[in-house]
Design a protein around this nucleic acid. Structure first.
Length: 656
DNA sequence: AGACTCACG
DNA sequence: ACGTACGTGAGTCTC
């Protein structure tokens, strides 16, 4: 999916399928001639001569599969003029490897592509695998984007000069749209229907590798990609300049692509024996629970089926459904609802435990070991740069941004994320970053003072609101204050607060009123942000990352309210994303000089995770802390907590 | 493929 | 009267 998800999103557009011949002709005329050429021995010389004088070109790689870390390079298409493209198959690449590699490693030659991270990873694999002696093997026997010996430098990457990624450009121009695939963009921007990959390799279980398809067909397919990427480049570069987001694109998102490729290539070491052992343990307990529940229910049923569970609980066992939430299809059996029924019957506790164990078993214990790469024994996630509406990253195959931590049982899974022998895991978390951003954006004197004075933000919030000293703040009051602090980040109402904290609606209303009296700057900022969204149709982050909110002026209250919550949340969540992305770029550039063998291995929104030699903890911790704290100056002070340990689940805070 | 549920920040 | 906090990805059931 990695590649085809992003590049070949299928355009199942009705309009498209019913396109008349006449319409197709008009579009084709506009598209013009498509001169796509397969390079062979005869035209090779001319092609290479032409290629080597280009200061800027568009390219696309074809490979044997979807996963860049287990696929092999099959060919590369090139385009530097609209409508004209060339496909260089693997055998000719290999014969001319030195020349091709030099071009891709040359930072001064600008490369344009669609989803360049993928191409970069495939090319890096190719460069390190086929050149004995030229690039040293990784110290720990794993392929690395950044080789570390003898003198680590960025030039060692196989690919440099990544200049313009049209997928990222599309995302920056409108992050609210989830489809940034080449097929979709070619259709949306030019009305052109590209050849679907399925036309070549088929689909479903009969799907074959591109390696089995005749060269001419692959050539045309690949050239079409390079050609239309080049056309999109021309369009998007103008739009980026007009929007004022060219800086965000060139100075943040484009450099980040290389960082993400490095992180993905590094991968994470997993103790799969530990996971498998836990899986067996969980399975035993799940089976016991199942038997007990069946006995209480008086029949056997599928505990994992909400539909069957509903019938058992509310119809057969007659458990009261008063106050129980609903879904589209009826009563809900979500954990929050089960929690409300806790006292009613002992079956509820068992169901809650079943849910937790089966979730953890299927999503993590059983799934993660299957994704360990055979070549290096590590897990290589994909960090997606063009998915979220706010500018955050997302992680998939597997998602390593939602590894359990909140419960004791779940925490055992995190302990299976380990370091190589002689290495340690280090994590660095921004402390309360979103609230610090709110305080800074709103220039709220009270909230800034709390951060400047240090101490616990939620306790201090409670103390301020109630006009009592911090020492008198009870756990209960602190909890409510914490919920409100979070609520502000999301645009909460009184009802939400009362349902979350258990206090009455009136109490919640009063609390919120007091909160905004104390933090009048925050209140003002929230209101102004919504007004701005209405006026401009979009909101933006500290670095100018936009999110368009067309529904902000909707006449339907619900729709409008939802857009208003997005309007206040985006500058907060998105600015935090801007900040950590900047830090990642700085750290990736500087870390090799501080500690050549240290590696960044994960990002989890406000946290970075590293694997580093156990002898270099102190200097690396200081470097990471200093970089993360200083990369963006806010009105509020920025704090980072750095911890280290044998695994991701058991780390101890480092004093700096 | 959609609904539901639940893991994370 | 109604729905009710932002942003994700994935496994399972059901149709």
């Amino acid at each position: 999916l990695r590649m085809y998800d992003s590049e070949n999103t299928v355009c199942s557009n009705e309009k498209n399928e019913n396109q008349t011949e006449e319409v197709k002709e008009i579009i084709n005329k506009k598209i013009g001639e498509q001169k796509y050429e397969l390079i062979d021995k005869k035209n090779l010389k001319t092609f290479l001569a032409e290629l080597s004088i280009q200061k800027e070109f568009c390219f696309d790689t074809e490979s044997t599969g979807l996963d860049p870390f287990s696929s092999k390079l099959l060919g590369i298409s090139f385009c530097w003029k609209v409508g004209t493209a060339y496909y260089l198959p693997i055998d000719l690449i290999e014969v001319n490897a030195k020349k091709i590699k030099a071009i891709f490693a040359d930072e001064s030659i600008k490369k344009i592509g669609h989803n360049l991270k993928y191409d970069m990873e495939v090319l890096n694999q190719f460069c390190s695998s086929s050149s004995q002696g030229e690039v040293p093997e990784g110290r720990r026997g794993l392929p690395t984007a950044r080789q570390t010996t003898p003198n680590p430098s960025l030039e060692r990457r196989g690919t440099a000069g990544l200049y313009f990624d049209t997928m990222i450009a599309s995302y920056i121009l409108n992050p609210g749209v989830r489809q940034h695939g080449l097929d979709t963009l070619a259709f949306v921007e030019f009305g052109y229907q590209m050849q679907p990959i399925e036309a070549l390799i088929g689909k479903g279980k009969d799907q074959v590798s591109l390696a089995e398809i005749p060269l001419e067909k692959v050539s045309w397919y690949s050239c079409e990609d390079a050609d239309f990427t080049f056309r999109l480049y021309d369009k998007f570069k103008k739009e980026l300049a007009d929007s004022g987001m060219a800086g965000l694109f060139h100075d943040l998102e484009m450099p980040l692509t290389t960082v993400l490729a490095d992180i993905e290539t590094n991968g994470v070491k997993i103790n799969d024996k530990a996971l498998k052992k836990l899986s067996v343990e969980f399975d035993g307990r799940i089976k016991i629970i199942e038997k007990k529940v069946w006995k209480m229910a008086g029949e056997e049923f599928n505990l994992a089926s909400p539909k069957q569970l509903k019938e058992i609980l509310f119809e057969k066992m007659k458990i009261s459904s008063v106050g129980i939430g609903k879904t589209k299809t009826g009563l809900s059996t979500a954990a929050a609802e089960l929690e409300k029924m806790k006292g009613e019957h002992e079956i509820i506790d068992l169901l809650i435990e079943f849910r937790e164990l089966s979730k953890l078993k299927s999503t993590y214990l059983d799934a993660l070991p299957l994704l360990i790469n055979k070549k290096d024994g590590r897990v290589h996630t994909s960090f997606n740069q063009t998915v979220t509406a706010t500018g955050r990253l997302s992680s998939s195959e597997p998602n390593l941004q939602n590894i359990p931590i909140r419960t004791e049982t779940g925490g055992q899974i995190r302990k299976a994320f380990i370091a190589e022998k002689g290495f340690q895991i280090m994590k660095a978390d921004y402390s309360q970053i979103e609230l610090r951003i709110v305080a800074s954006l709103a220039d709220d004197q009270q909230m800034l003072k709390i951060f400047n004075d240090g101490g616990d933000i939620h306790t201090m919030t409670a103390a301020l609101i109630h006009g009592i000293p911090a020492s008198e703040v009870t756990k209960e009051i602190r909890r409510t204050a914490k919920e409100v602090n979070f609520g502000v980040l999301y645009g909460m109402g009184a009802w939400g607060l009362s349902s979350r904290t258990g206090i009455s609606n009136a109490e919640a209303q009063e609390f919120i009123f007091k909160y905004f009296s104390a933090f009048s700057g925050v209140k003002k900022w929230l209101e102004e942000t919504i007004v701005m969204a209405r006026d401009k149709g979009y909101v933006e982050t500290l670095l100018g990352r936009r999110r368009y909110l067309p529904e902000i002026n909707s006449s339907m209250g619900q729709v409008r309210s939802s857009a208003e919550r997005m309007a206040v949340n985006h500058p907060i969540q998105g600015s935090a994303a801007d900040m950590i992305k900047l830090a990642m770029i700085e750290i990736n550039n500087g870390l090799p000089k501080v500690s050549p063998e240290s590696r960044m291995i994960l990002q989890v929104h406000d946290e970075l995770v590293f694997e580093l030699p156990e002898t270099e903890i102190k200097k690396v911790a200081k470097f990471i802390n200093d970089t993360m704290c200083s990369v963006m100056k806010l009105r509020a002070p920025i704090e980072v907590e750095v911890s280290v340990g044998d695994n991701w689940g058991e780390t101890e805070k480092i004093k700096l």
